[in-house]
């Protein structure tokens, strides 16, 4: 089956994108990334701090993954655009996971600032992957601006609530032609499989793996879940019925 996942002009074998935040150590992170089979990972920019462990980029290089810097912590379009340009200089990539947060309790996106930042960054030549709400109209507006994908939240970041509004995720898949990546809210493997069954092209998750009791086992589960969900979404599932439909023929049943 020809089932390529092309994002920003690059072909990926894995539809699981992992965030690096929350891992207890770089060693655990490396093992989890390898177990997940991911080819694209997120990372962030913060002030240098000699007290923090060095070597994140070495780990990522060993894993052979492509870098997707984020703009986490930005609350305005101006801050997000500045952070994207800093990330481009630091990591030699014009790919950016665009986050413009509007509320620090839910960490949900600020739609107005997000659109402003996306427009500017597309103009500046970035491959823009915006973290957005599950609003199909906003997703279409982002796609129309030239974003390389849209990444709706299933539920708030780190909540593990799963997919609050599956109907909207399916509507987003219908509303845009670019890849749809379910980003945020995933708690366990069935959430990731569900996202793929709803038609998402990929899943991005971090906490579900990095904060699991056994991150390597959960990364393995997520790898299988994404593959299973993708296959199921392509396989033409049976319709849902209210009553049974026997799978064993009634013909030939003996009479006593």
């Amino acid at each position: 089956m020809d089932d390529r996942f092309v994002l920003g002009g690059v072909e990926f074998g894995s539809r699981l994108i992992l965030g690096t935040g929350g891992a207890s150590s770089l060693h655990v992170l490396e093992q989890a990334l390898l177990a997940g089979g991911t080819e694209l990972i997120t990372l962030a920019l913060r002030r240098i701090d000699p007290g923090l462990p060095a070597g994140l980029l070495d780990v990522l290089e060993r894993c052979g993954v492509r870098l997707l810097p984020n703009t986490a912590g930005c609350y305005t379009a101006a801050d997000a655009v500045r952070t994207a340009h800093l990330a481009r200089d630091a990591f030699d990539t014009d790919w950016i996971k665009l986050e413009v947060i509007g509320d620090d309790r839910t960490l949900l996106p600020d739609a107005v600032e997000l659109l402003r930042a996306a427009e500017r960054l597309v103009d500046d030549g970035f491959t823009v992957l915006p973290y957005t709400t599950d609003d199909p109209v906003l997703a279409r507006r982002l796609a129309d601006l030239g974003c390389a994908a849209v990444m709706p939240a299933g539920a708030p970041i780190g909540s593990g609530l799963g997919i609050s509004n599956p109907h909207h995720i399916a509507l987003i898949r219908e509303a845009v032609r670019c890849p749809v990546i379910l980003d945020a809210g995933i708690g366990t493997a069935s959430d990731a499989a569900r996202a793929m069954e709803l038609g998402c092209d990929a899943v991005l998750l971090a906490s579900a793996v990095t904060r699991a009791a056994d991150p390597v086992a959960m990364a393995t589960a997520m790898r299988h879940a994404v593959i299973a969900g993708r296959l199921a979404s392509q396989a033409g599932r049976i319709p849902v019925r209210r009553h049974a439909l026997a799978s064993t023929p009634a013909d030939g049943l003996p009479t006593w």
Partner: peptide, 10 residues
Amino acid sequence: VEVLTAVQGG
């Protein structure tokens, strides 16, 4: 001056 570097995130 802001001097920034890679950290785990996202």
